[in-house]
């Protein structure tokens, strides 16, 4: 499913191109959750931010972070599209703070390459980043393939892959892994 964030904002009569403040985040979240009522298990939901310039930390906390939590509970995957540079910076800052203060990390994948030269936003290790990049190109890969690619200890790789799956940036189908 593709959700146009700008269109959702317009439906709610929220002024664009900037989506700021907690109340706006809450309003957008509740409308997006309604739209997600029809999605199936394991589906990828693309949040398309075309037409949106700035999303601030309050909005990110109420909208993106809450949707990430929901994706774990309801078994779907999130992906961002058309994220502006400043929005990427703000998301990264929120995710880093979150990960420093909570005992879990949050990360989200994106369609287009970001300022970090990666296809995700959030605090991943170099090793995890490499696995994610490898799986973006080599869809449907086994754990052995990933071990061979990284050259790292298989237990370590398995742990990284499990972490990436827990963060909902990696999918497993019939024993094969693909990046979201």
């Amino acid at each position: 499913m593709i959700i146009s964030v700008e269109k959702t904002a317009k439906e709610l009569k929220v002024k664009t191109p900037d989506l700021i403040t907690r109340p706006v985040g809450r309003l957008m979240y509740s409308s997006t959750v309604d739209k997600l009522a029809v999605i199936g298990a394991g589906e990828v939901v693309i949040l398309d931010f075309a037409g949106i310039k700035v999303i601030d930390s309050s909005f990110i906390d109420e909208y993106v972070v809450r949707l990430i939590h929901d994706s774990c509970k309801r078994d779907f995957y999130l992906k961002l599209r058309n994220i502006s540079a400043i929005s990427e910076i703000n998301i990264d800052s929120v995710f880093n703070s979150y990960s420093n203060y909570k005992d879990r990390r949050i990360v989200i994948t994106r369609e287009d390459i970001g300022r970090n030269n990666r296809f995700y936003i959030g605090p991943l290790s170099e090793n995890e980043s490499d696995i994610l990049d490898y799986l973006r190109i080599n869809q449907g890969t086994t754990l052995d393939d990933i071990v061979n690619f990284t050259g790292a200890d298989s237990l370590k790789v398995k742990k990284s892959v499990e972490e990436l799956m827990f963060m909902r940036v990696l999918k497993k189908n019939n024993g094969e892994f693909t990046a979201v």
Partner: peptide, 16 residues
């Protein structure tokens, strides 16, 4: 454009 977007973030955060 990025300076404008930076200031939008700053105004929004501080006013909130």
């Amino acid at each position: 454009d990025s300076v404008v977007d930076y200031f939008v973030t700053v105004i929004s955060e501080l006013c909130q």
